[in-house]
Design a protein around this nucleic acid. Sequence first.
DNA 1: CCAAAAGTGTTGACCGTACACCCATGA
DNA 2: TCATGGGTGTACGGTCAACACTTTTGG
Lengths: 229, 229
Amino acid sequence: MVDYYKTYSKFYLALDCIIFGFDKGELKLLLIKRNISPMKGKWSLMGGFMDIGETLDDAAKRVLFQLTGLTKIYMEQLKVFSELNREPDERVISVTYYALIRSSDYNKINAEKHNASWQSVSEVPELVFDHNQMVNEALEKLKRKSRSQPIGLELLPHKFSLPQLQQLYEAIFQQKLDKRNFRKKMLSTGLFKREVTSDQQIGRNGTFIYSFDKKKYNELIAKGFVLDI
Amino acid sequence: MVDYYKTYSKFYLALDCIIFGFDKGELKLLLIKRNISPMKGKWSLMGGFMDIGETLDDAAKRVLFQLTGLTKIYMEQLKVFSELNREPDERVISVTYYALIRSSDYNKINAEKHNASWQSVSEVPELVFDHNQMVNEALEKLKRKSRSQPIGLELLPHKFSLPQLQQLYEAIFQQKLDKRNFRKKMLSTGLFKREVTSDQQIGRNGTFIYSFDKKKYNELIAKGFVLDI
DNA sequence: CCAAAAGTGTTGACCGTACACCCATGA
DNA sequence: TCATGGGTGTACGGTCAACACTTTTGG
């Protein structure tokens, strides 16, 4: 029975993570300078190889943890890349994941240790292999998904201002939005709770702080609600 | 250099195809009764293993061709399934593709040879391994994508009537639609050309036949048009 | 005191939705 | 002749988009 499998080929399986962040009104990517061959010294996505005994999701989490030290990060499988010569020396199939990191977690990342740095998505450098293509696919997916679901919130701190939220969507969709219409639309969902706070770190005095009511959101979703930003 | 890879594990890579069709107002799946172990005699998606020297897209096309004899079929990568024990005897990572087949191509398929048969998506039998989960993911994807893009048209003959088109969307979205509003919306896009035809095969006499203007659609898309059915 | 950023409502246009009857055909 | 299925238009309500001024604060 088991012999049945033996006629088939086996492949190396890699994971590559497209790690998004949002800071100072800009959408960013966490990139590393490779310190291993091949392509040592070139800019690259953070990646790794899959081990026996873990699922792809596990492996992606592990790779992200190695770079950032963070757990409980929003991650989602994107696409598999399998072109014959995508890596020069060996046939490697790469499964991509994209991850969304809150800027409030930035300082926890030991970026120097991995030669990692945040770079604006509007100026992505040339990356190794097919990594630029991976980044483009991830950006498209982020845009598409942001239109119908509030995943963008995974990029903001748990408490945020409406101007911050608007900047985020402007960065994702790459277009200016009308302030009054944006506020109206967001607040009309009833999913944003205004926080009573004396915290002055977010914006200037007079700026209202909100949090997202995830519980209420899930209840609405269960009733067939569609966000549609 | 190349030794660098040698510390990593290799995996069997399988392809599984979720093959949709549309006939007599019903959305269907092409399923096979497995004639090989493991799970011989059980219902299953059509699948196969990836070979050295082909990409995943190539392999998916090959698998689909083996079953249906059809080429130039709409196919898209869906998701990778990698649970540790998803197949009982060996660790196999499976990449799923979904395919959309026009009912006018049905008769070209030599279904008996592969123990294949079309079954309604509303009555999917119990399938081997995690194939039911694959089908559910594919259905969700088909729904989501149909809302913004006319991929459903890949399931219809090139010439079709508006009632046919409406039935298709009703089958995909699992809900009744208003006839007049549906027609208005579709025709207002200007993407459907009424054909002058004496062909009586589609519907009854008096039924207008349309075709989709793909060229015009691509032009509109390029200008930022979003279909939004 | 001046520049920059946050807060706040109204209106007109457009789109989505609800809804009923006639005609032709085939059983 | 009757049941089935295809074709057709209007009116109401709601949502989206455009638009300007005041206040506060930090430099």
